[in-house]
Deep mutational scan, measured.
Amino acid sequence: MDVRRLKVNELREELQRRGLDTRGLKAELAERLQAALEAEEP
Rank of each mutant, 00 (worst) to 15 (best):
L33N: 00
G19M: 07
E28N: 00
R23Q: 13
E38M: 14
V8M: 15
L29C: 08
V8W: 07
A39P: 13
E40H: 07
E10N: 03
M1S: 00
A36E: 08
R18G: 02
R32F: 00
E31I: 10
E38R: 08
A36G: 05
E10H: 05
A39W: 06
E13C: 00
A39C: 14
E28C: 07
L11N: 03
M1T: 03
E14T: 03
V3C: 15
A27D: 08
R4S: 15
D21E: 12
G19V: 01
T22L: 06
V8F: 14
D21S: 08
K26C: 07
L6H: 02
R12K: 10
E14A: 06
R4C: 08
L15C: 07
A39Y: 07
A27I: 03
E31V: 10
R17N: 03
E41W: 04
A30Q: 09
R4T: 15
R4F: 15
L20Y: 02
R17L: 13
V3S: 12
E10Q: 09
A39M: 09
G24R: 00
A39G: 09
K7Y: 03
E38A: 06
G24W: 00
G24N: 00
L15D: 01
L29W: 00
N9C: 05
R23G: 14
R32T: 03
G24K: 00
L11Q: 01
R12A: 10
E40T: 10
R12T: 12
K7G: 10
A27E: 13
L6E: 05
R4N: 12
A35I: 06
R5Q: 15
A30G: 09
V3M: 13
Q16C: 15
E40C: 07
V3A: 11
L15V: 02
K26Y: 11
R32M: 02
A36R: 07
E13Q: 07
M1A: 00
R18I: 05
L11D: 03
E41C: 09
A27W: 09
L15I: 02
E14K: 04
V8I: 10
Q16I: 15
L6F: 08
D21F: 02
L6R: 02
L15K: 02
L33W: 01
A35R: 09
K7F: 03
Q34T: 09
N9G: 11
A39H: 13
R5C: 04
E14P: 00
T22C: 07
V8T: 11
Q16R: 12
L25D: 15
E10F: 11
G24L: 00
R5T: 13
L6V: 02
R18H: 11
T22W: 09
G19F: 02
K7M: 10
A36I: 00
R32S: 03
A35F: 09
E40R: 08
E38T: 07
K26T: 10
A39R: 11
E40K: 13
K7L: 07
R12L: 08
G19Q: 09
K26G: 10
E13T: 10
R17E: 08
A36S: 13
E38H: 04
R18M: 12
G24I: 00
R5K: 09
E38L: 07
L11A: 02
E38N: 05
A27N: 15
E38W: 05
E40Q: 07
E31K: 06
G19T: 03
R17M: 14
G24D: 02
V8A: 12
R12D: 02
R32N: 05
N9P: 12
